[in-house]
Amino acid sequence: MKHLEPFKKASIYDSAQRSPAALEELFGVFRYRDLIHQLIYRDIVARYKRSVLGIAWTMLNPLGTMLVLTIVFSQLFHTVEGYPTYVLSGLLAWTFFAQTTNSAMQQLVWGSALLHRIYMPRTVFAISAIGTGLVNLIFSLFPLILLMVITAMPIRWSILFLPVPILLLAAYALGIGLLFSTMAVYFPDVAEMYQVVLIAWMYLTPIIYPQDIIPETYRGWFLSLNPMYYLIQIFRIPIYEGSLPPWPMLGIGAGIAFTTLLFGWIVFSRKADEFTYRA
């Protein structure tokens, strides 16, 4: 039968014979990798298309924020040597986390109209949010290096270690993004609440202030309970201190990041079938 030819490799969908949700989602993401690429492209290109400076804003934005913070806080924290580098390195890591987790939630809301019409792996929206954030983060490393040159901060080889902390940040952000998106599908208020959580979380993490302003009596447990403390330190130390982060810290950071990712992925993909039942 000649007309059957184009269908030879037809895939089979059988609702009674599905793999575990988390695995099925993973295979789906692999098959739809070009969609993720397109979504990242769309986010970056569409966002800056109408602005004159375009993509340069990904670099000017963190630089401007750093400048404001430096002017405001450098008197207060004058004990911190090379404060601009200290604050910008922490800020880049934090902004990546805050923006990507937020955008993962927004994207799922945007995508839910599509999810009602055609099949696609539901994690693509969160993953592309992380991808967009990664592109922005990499772009914003250039003004960081520029700043270090200008303020005469030594740039050491340890900066080549950065892919590791970036990977950990991405894994953790994806895990949190998936967890909160799942919740936001059921309770739309979560998206609003998360904004407040982010602000509180940011001020509880030593990003714009040095960690030694926290009273010594409870500094230890205060920091050790905050996952973002480890991830930001792992990112900041190779830049600011010019050395590799201590191994125990790296171990804890990696543990937190990948456990969160695994947990978020499993929760999200097990609940994903229900998304189209809601709203």
Binding site: I12, A46, Y119, T276
Partner: peptide, 30 residues
């Protein structure tokens, strides 16, 4: 495949293309 059945079994061979609401995924700035 957008909705998983609450009960029962769905078996589909090949790609299903819904031609409803064309251009639902278009982005105006692109």
């Amino acid at each position: 495949r957008v909705l998983a059945p609450t009960q029962g079994r769905v078996w589909i061979k090949g790609r299903v293309s819904p031609l409803l609401e064309l251009g639902a995924g278009f982005h105006p700035e692109l």
